[in-house]
Amino acid sequence: MSVTSDRSADGQELTIIIKGRFDFSTHQEFRSAYEPKEKHASRYKVDLKDTHYLDSSALGMLLLLRDHAGGDRADIQLVNCNNDVKKILDISNFSKLFNIVKTA
């Protein structure tokens, strides 16, 4: 499991990449990926390409990010969701909260 982040050149977009299991053990890493000292990004992308498991605490962490990014006004894309990950997001109808993009 690892969390890395990458900011676009203009600083507006922050991409968080999660590899392996996305569960409670990722909590601290995930938070520190988007709570930097510098100013907020205006758009967020969570790349789930190499995420093969996601539990309910991961959903909770996504909600924390959403809250951090402005709640109902948040601009967050969940990209490269494979079928298993998509299924979990679907059950909780997270498509109503996030922009979910499936694996191409």
Binding site: L63, G71, D72, D90, I91, S92, F94, K96, L97
Partner: peptide, 14 residues
């Protein structure tokens, strides 16, 4: 089928 966001997530308005 679950067609809603779980309880405690959305504000009253949505």
């Amino acid at each position: 089928i679950s067609s809603n966001v779980p309880l405690g997530v959305l504000s009253a308005g949505s």
